[in-house]
Every structure is written in C-alpha cells, then in structure tokens.
C-alpha cells in the first residue's frame, strides 16, 4: 500500500504572523508538502516554503532534489518563500513549476518578485533547473500521482488541486470564496443552519477526499464585512466537506488577526456544524509542523 505523507509548513493567510499569539498554528504563509514514495509535491510557496527547503537540504544534502510545485495563485503570501527556497540554488536540483493558467503566469511572477528592486538575487541566477509546465484540463499523471485542478472564486483567479494515488485523495483548496458560489442563498439567509449547497462541479472535484485542506479564514460574523475578499467562512467549508463526503477537513489559511485561541473557537463552531448536519468528519486546524499519513 502506498502511503502519502502531508506536512504543513505554512498555514497562515495574507501575511506572516510570527510571535507567541500564533505559536501553535504557526505564522508562516501557505505551504504544504505531499510525499509519495520519493516523489515530492509542493502546494504554494509562501514563507513556509523556506522551512521546507531547509528540511530538504538537511535530510538529503548530497542527493539531487526533484520537486513538483503547484501554486493556487500568485498573491504574495503564496509565492514569497520561493526566493528563500534553498534547493532552488543548487545545480543538481530540478523544480517543475505547474501552471493552471497555461500562460506561464506563475513563472513570470516568480521571476518578477526576484527583480533587483525586490530581491538581490535574480531568478536567472538560480542554480537549479526550473521547468515550467502547463497543466492540461482534466487530469495529469505526475510520477504516478493523478493531479487535477479546478478554478476557484478569488480576486485575480486561484486554483484548487487534487492528488489521487493508490485510492487516496488529497485536495488542496485555499483562497476560495465559497460563499459567493452558494446555490441556495435565499434558503440559507432564512435559515442559517441550512446546508449551503455548493456547485456540483466543485462538490464532484472534492468528492470522497480523504483529506481536504481548505481556506476557512473567517467566522460567520467576520465574513459579513469581508465579502469579496476572496476567502470563505469556515462554516461554508464544512458544508462543502459534508456534501463531498470528506474524511478529514483541515481548516487552512488562518486569518493574520487570529490568535491560536481564536482559531480554536472557529474550529469549535466548525465541529458543531458538522454535528448539526449529522456528518462524521474530523475537523482540525492546519498547524505548522504537523504531518499526516494518509
């Protein structure tokens, strides 16, 4: 049986938030790794990517590193760690950068943030081989893992990815304002306990995931003043997980204003909503340094 190992390197949204208030869930921005055998898949290059790079260099200092990088989108908190990703500086390493826009947009923006106005080392001076690959519509087989993507609701576009291997499914879906896709808005406005129906295509994309890592940045109360900002209510993410029959739900992209205790409260409400819907889903807060075996 092939095991998949998922590790959280950065779980914070928007901007790094170091300090004791965020110590438990972590202050680095989005980065999650998936290991299947010797293959390494990386979702987003927020500041957590630096930590992953350090770890890789410590674990395999003499081996060539090959990594497949997927970016939900190119807002700062999802690319800012890339110039500090140590494996990018070694000529023996190869990085595949996948682009769901199929416009080399990701590569261009990774390159752009390393212009001399922003950073002392140019992208062209990185020692590793960096290969940009356009992601085809549908599914792509990469080192034995079937990867799919779907566009999400977020200012400037964003994409969710699913990784299927040996009957296991992991979905990474951050920076998605699910609340703007609710199909039964009037019913839900009349009854806040009502299951918020999400688009069938999205539910199918997530269907049966063993692990869904999803943006659940806001409480219901906070969301009222943040409509259009591109992030979801944790309660709506729960409803997606319920409809899609998810096994585990990791609430991700924690709000930079949320201390650990705030995340705990948000999670308690999310778990209550799972119970309300009569579902059995393990809901937890994504935290730095946590590794799951799927």
């Amino acid at each position: 049986m092939t095991d998949a190992f998922v590790r959280f390197w950065g779980t914070r949204g928007s901007i790094p938030t170091p300090g004791h208030r965020t110590r438990r869930y972590g202050g680095n921005t989005s980065c999650v790794s998936l290991r299947v055998g010797n293959a390494l898949y990386v979702c987003d290059g927020g500041t957590g990517l630096r930590e992953l790079g350090v770890s890789l260099m410590q674990e395999q200092p003499n081996d060539a590193i090959e990594a497949h990088l997927f970016f939900s989108h190119t807002h700062w908190d999802h690319i800012q760690g890339f110039p500090f990703f140590m494996p990018a500086y070694s000529s023996k390493n190869t990085l595949y950068v996948y682009d769901a826009t199929r416009e080399e947009r990701v590569r261009q923006l990774l390159l752009g943030q390393m212009r001399s106005d922003y950073f002392p080392v140019a992208f062209s001076d990185l020692g590793s081989t960096i290969i940009s690959r356009a992601l085809e519509t549908g599914e792509t087989l990469i080192d034995g893992v079937c990867v799919r993507h779907i566009e999400q609701v977020h200012p400037g576009r964003s994409f969710a990815y699913s990784f299927n291997v040996a009957g296991k499914k992991i979905v990474y879906a951050t920076d998605s304002e699910l609340d703007l896709s609710i199909q039964n808005v009037s019913e839900c406005d009349a009854n806040r306990d009502r299951l918020r129906q999400l688009p069938a295509e999205l539910v199918k994309f997530v269907q049966g995931a063993d692990l869904l890592i999803a943006d659940g940045q806001y409480t219901d109360e906070e969301y009222a003043t943040k409509v259009g900002w591109g992030h979801a209510r944790a309660s709506t993410v729960v409803d997606l997980a319920v409809q899609a029959g998810v096994g585990q739900l990791a609430i991700f992209h924690h709000d930079p204003m949320h201390a650990d205790e705030d995340v705990d409260q948000l999670l308690a409400v999310a778990r209550s909503r799972v119970e309300l819907h009569g579902a059995r889903i393990s809901v937890f807060g994504a935290r730095e340094g946590l590794e799951l075996r799927i």
Binding site: R24, L290, L292
Partner: peptide, 23 residues
C-alpha cells in the same frame, strides 16, 4: 510515530509526526 499499531494523536488529530507546543 515509529510505525506503531495504534498511532498517536495530537489534540485529537492522528499524526505521523508533529512539532509539539506547550499544552
């Protein structure tokens, strides 16, 4: 986890490994 039969949980979440925090 060292390949244990029953695994271990951190704050209720089954983990393969975890950096520990106070409490």
């Amino acid at each position: 986890d060292l390949g244990s039969k029953n695994g271990f949980y951190v704050n209720g979440v089954r983990a393969h490994s975890a950096v520990l925090r106070d409490g």
